[in-house]
C-alpha cells in the first residue's frame, strides 16, 4: 500500500533531460528509471549490487542503480544506456563494437557492460587487458561471453582512438 503523504519530490538530469518524480523513501534510482521514466534499457538482475545489470553513470561514475535510493540521486546527473547513442539515434562506437565483436548474446548484461566500458574509455582511452578486467569486474555475463566482450572493448578503444 502506498503512503502518498510519505512521498517526496526528486529532480535529476537523465540523459541530458531534466526530470522530476514523486517517490517513496524506499524508491531506488532503478525504479525511477524503469517505472517512472520507462527507460527499460537498465536491467534489474540480482538487486543486491553483484551483477551490474543496472549499471548507470551517476555524476560521471558507475553505480548500481539498485543500491541508490532515488533521494540520494536528487540533483544528480544520470546517464543510462538510452543516453549513449548520438542525437539522431546513431550507435555509439562502443555499441557498434559490441555488435561487431559478437559480444551480445542474451543481451541482459549488455547495457551495464557498455556503461562500464564507456566509463573506462572516458578515463583511459587505451586500456590494457588487466584494466579492462578491473573496469568490468562488477558486471557479470552468464552467457560466458567475456572473451567477445573484451574483444569489443579493445575494438571500441581502437576505433575511438583512430577517430580522434
Amino acid at each position: 500500500m502506498e503512503h502518498k503523504e510519505n512521498k517526496t519530490a526528486v529532480s535529476m538530469t537523465v540523459n541530458g533531460k531534466h526530470i522530476q518524480a514523486e517517490v517513496l523513501p524506499e524508491t531506488r534510482l532503478l525504479d525511477v528509471l524503469r517505472e517512472e521514466l520507462h527507460l527499460l534499457g537498465t536491467k534489474e538482475g540480482c538487486s543486491i549490487g553483484e551483477c551490474g545489470a543496472c549499471t548507470v553513470l551517476m555524476n560521471g561514475r558507475t553505480v548500481n542503480a539498485c543500491m541508490v535510493l532515488a533521494g540520494s540521486a536528487d540533483g544528480a546527473e544520470i546517464m543510462t544506456i538510452e543516453g549513449v547513442c548520438g542525437p539522431e539515434g546513431e550507435l555509439h562506437p562502443i555499441q557498434q563494437a559490441f555488435i561487431d565483436a559478437g559480444a551480445v548474446h542474451c543481451g541482459f548484461c549488455t547495457p551495464g557492460m557498455i556503461i562500464s566500458t564507456l566509463s573506462l574509455l572516458m578515463k583511459n582511452p587505451q586500456p590494457k587487458d588487466d584494466q579492462i578486467q578491473e573496469a568490468l569486474s562488477g558486471n557479470l555475463c552468464r552467457c560466458t561471453g567475456y572473451h567477445q566482450i573484451f574483444k569489443a572493448v579493445r575494438l571500441a578503444s581502437e576505433r575511438m582512438h583512430r577517430k580522434e
Partner: peptide, 9 residues
C-alpha cells in the same frame, strides 16, 4: 572493495 560500482558509493 567490491567492484567499481560499489567503490563509487
Amino acid at each position: 572493495v567490491g567492484s567499481p560500482q560499489i567503490r563509487s558509493r
